[in-house]
Design a binder for these strands. Structure first.
Length: 732
DNA sequence: GTCCAAACGGTTTTT
DNA sequence: CCGTTTGGAC
């Protein structure tokens, strides 16, 4: 009699469907993981299981995610199951993995292995130069528009010269494809590529070089893909090429949470899985351990209205599954809505809910403002997610451009960015002659600049300034090897006058920018040298959300995907705003389904309490505009939701937020029933005339007058403003 | 070359 | 309404 081997602990913690997803190792597998059904657990356990059973060595598994955060989490959790750190993994984002492959085979697409990866800002500047050189009227045809067209082509795996008629663009009088070709030529000349190129080039290589493809087939026995519903066509093609080897591809995703079509994601990839990979097994994860039954009922009912879906139903898996119903609140205007949310937050706080368990999720970024203002008045700490990323900030980009230009003589884009920052009197005239010289001699800008300084070109003043910069760069580059990149980087920022520039800036952001520069230097210390640091920074956009302190989270629905909170507010459910009119105009019925998925994502973020609201009147771009409740409110199951406040449909002809234009003008509509709302203003701290204060938006200033909670303040940067006392804080 | 006022445009976002 | 970009004046 043979004894059944004991079930490993990591498998015993899974429910049957999760176990099936982990233990179905051979052949293509699609795991349809509904919200809150333990998707990450399945993915990481499967990975660990492959290693534990000896099916694969760590380097024989290709594991792909969309974000660095997800990659990091997977690495940590796999390590935790194995109880040791795992090394040598092919685990990372699509872009990081593609970059790693591309560096190995760069020459096959005409690049050197040390190619630079450009970010959005560099991309647009480069394209603008290309368009300008081609004589395109940049006013009529903004470069950002063409950038979008090119990106979509890249998302679909289309190189210049291979654009089918159906996918062509009439941008800039049908010159889009030619401009695309010139742009790619410029990139090649700079030994650079943009984010889209990483996958485009690699896919090209795998397609055209069977020996390379075969090498990866031998290497990767198993492929794991996270968030498959968000893949675009080129990512799909890359995966399919790699999966042709062993056919052991496991994709995890949720068609109901596909919300990124506007940046190239194709929900069809996941819908088509069985066709693409014949014999595929599909496992559905439907037991939700996150939310209460009423919340799941509301979400399920809503999403069932979508046509294009594979279909699955969320079951409440929690023991305490019963809970309060989803609450729909009808309000008069956006200000009342903000007050209502504020009150409910205070109530919850009194009952002991932690602020970090509360989130306000909006459709569009501008909606956060009214809530911020309200929370400031109430003195409730909050955090807005997803503003400018650390690495996208001006000061960080400037500093990196300095490093890049110093290290690499051929990095024209970096050189151009910092050559006159801080202002050293090098304007258009000087730059143009620099460009001309560089092109004539066929050398990078910095070399051309060196020659111009030597040769005595330019006027004395700019020449002296340029000489100083070039000498500095030579000095820093030389010192970098001897003294270490961090020390030299710090000195570079000082000696170039860059930190000085921000020290002299009186604006409210300046001190923060100096802090960010320090933070950048600190982060640099984790890397052996400047080159390693620059590679990291190009691909890893850290979203510096250090969750310090108890704060209410304010973010867009998109940013909330993958997160969960005890209490979730979903304001602004009005036609035109959500579903967004613009989205509907562009994509019709398909877009409506995506908006509905967004609503589904929103509701399923809530563990215990979900409050949805809509306002009859809202101020948008300064005009008071009326709107009718969102159709999504009608799609929630009656009997499973509670409705509060009379639904007040506006009396005048309803106008959609973005479509109909202003109907009510700048006057705020009066509430019909008087006294339905009271403005309870919170006692404001006494702020005396002459006090020094800080305001979130205007920065530092001095109070010149004070009456009834309103202060006149002379701001150092923003001038004189009248603001509510609640919006400023005293500075000693 | 720099600075300020008018003009413009204003979902969603990761790498 | 309000932040960003641009074009014209010094």
């Amino acid at each position: 009699m043979t004894a059944t081997p004991p079930l490993p602990e990591y498998l015993s913690r899974l429910n049957p469907e999760q176990r099936a997803a982990v233990e179905t190792l051979d052949g293509p597998l699609l795991v349809l993981a509904g919200a809150g059904t333990g998707k990450t657990r399945v993915l990481t356990t499967r990975f660990a299981h492959l290693l534990m059973t000896g099916r694969a060595q760590p380097h024989q598994v290709l594991a792909v995610t969309f974000t660095n955060k997800a990659a990091r989490e997977m690495r940590e959790r796999v390590g935790a199951i194995l109880q040791r750190p795992v090394e040598g993994l092919w685990l990372g984002t699509f872009h990081a993995l593609a970059a790693r492959m591309l560096r190995r085979h760069a020459e096959l697409v005409g690049l050197r292995p040390d190619f630079t990866i450009l970010d959005t800002d560099d991309q647009t500047r480069l394209l603008k130069q290309v368009m300008d050189a081609a004589g395109v009227d940049l006013k009529r045809w903004p470069p950002a528009g063409l950038m979008g067209v090119i990106q979509r082509w890249k998302d679909r795996g289309l190189a210049p010269g291979k654009i089918p008629v159906a996918e062509s663009s009439d941008y800039a009088n049908n010159r889009a494809e030619a401009l695309y070709a010139s742009y790619q030529a410029r990139l090649a000349a700079l030994n650079a590529c943009d984010f889209g190129d990483l996958l485009l080039h690699v896919t090209e290589i795998l397609r055209n070089h069977p020996e390379v493809l075969e090498r990866y087939h031998r290497l990767f026995r198993y492929i794991l893909v996270d968030e498959y519903q968000d893949t675009n066509l080129v990512q799909y093609m890359w995966l399919r090429l790699l999966a042709q080897g062993h056919r052991n591809i496991c994709c995890v995703g949720d068609d109901d949470q596909s919300i990124y079509s506007w940046r190239g994601a194709e929900i069809e990839n996941i819908l088509r899985f069985e066709k693409d990979f014949p014999g595929a097994v599909i496992v559905r994860l439907e037991s939700n351990y996150r939310s209460t039954r009423p919340i799941l009922a509301a979400a399920s009912h809503l999403i069932s209205r979508n046509q294009g879906r594979l279909g699955k139903t969320l079951r409440a898996g929690r023991r305490d599954a019963d809970g309060e119903q989803v609450c729909i609140v009808s309000l008069w205007d956006s200000e009342e809505e903000a007050r209502s949310v504020g009150e409910r937050i205070e109530q919850a706080q009194r009952k002991g809910t932690s602020l970090s368990e509360i989130a306000i999720l909006v459709r569009a970024g501008f909606q956060t403002r009214s809530f911020e203002e309200r929370l400031i008045t109430l003195g409730i700490p909050y955090r807005v997610f997803g503003g400018a990323k650390f690495y996208e900030r001006q000061e960080i980009r400037d500093a990196i451009a300095y490093f890049r230009a110093t290290v690499s003589a051929s990095d024209d884009l970096a050189f151009e960015r910092i050559v006159n920052v801080p202002k050293r009197g090098l304007g258009d005239t000087a730059l143009t002659s620099l460009h001309v010289a560089a092109r004539e001699q066929g050398v990078p800008l910095r070399i051309a600049a060196e020659r111009m300084v030597e040769g005595g070109a330019l006027r004395p003043k700019p020449r002296a300034a340029l000489r100083e910069l070039l000498e500095g760069m030579a000095r820093w580059r030389e010192a970098m090897e001897r003294e270490g990149h961090v020390v030299v980087a710090a000195r570079l920022l000082e000696e170039s006058g860059y930190t000085e520039m921000w020290k002299n800036d009186r604006s409210a952001e300046a001190p923060g920018r100096l802090d960010n520069l320090k933070e950048l230097l600190r982060a640099m210390a984790d890397f052996p040298d400047m080159a390693a640091f620059l590679e990291h920074i190009a691909l890893v956009m850290e979203n510096d959300d250090k969750a310090e302190g108890e704060k209410v989270s304010l973010m867009t629905l998109h940013a909330a995907k993958g997160l969960e909170f005890d209490m979730v507010f979903l304001p602004g459910w009005e036609e035109g705003l959500f579903p967004s009119q613009r989205s509907l105009d562009e994509g019709g019925a398909k877009s409506l389904e995506e908006e509905r998925r967004l609503a589904y994502v929103g509701i399923t973020r809530a563990r215990k309490c979900c409050v949805i609201s809509h306002a009859a009147n809202r101020r948008i771009y300064g005009n008071w505009t009326s709107s009718i409740p969102s159709r999504f409110l009608d799609e929630l199951p009656e009997g499973e939701v509670t409705r509060e406040g009379a639904e007040r449909r506006p009396i005048p002809v309803p106008s959609s937020v973005f479509g109909g234009g202003p109907l009510l003008g700048t006057r705020r509509p009066r509430l019909i029933e008087a006294g339905a709302w009271e403005v309870e203003s919170r006692p404001t701290p006494e702020i005396a005339v002459g006090s020094r204060v800080f305001h979130q938006k205007f920065g530092y200033g001095t109070v010149t007058a004070s009456e009834e909670g309103r202060l006149d303040i002379e701001f150092e940067k923003a001038g004189t403003k009248r603001v509510m006392a609640g919006f400023v804080e005293l500075v000693h």
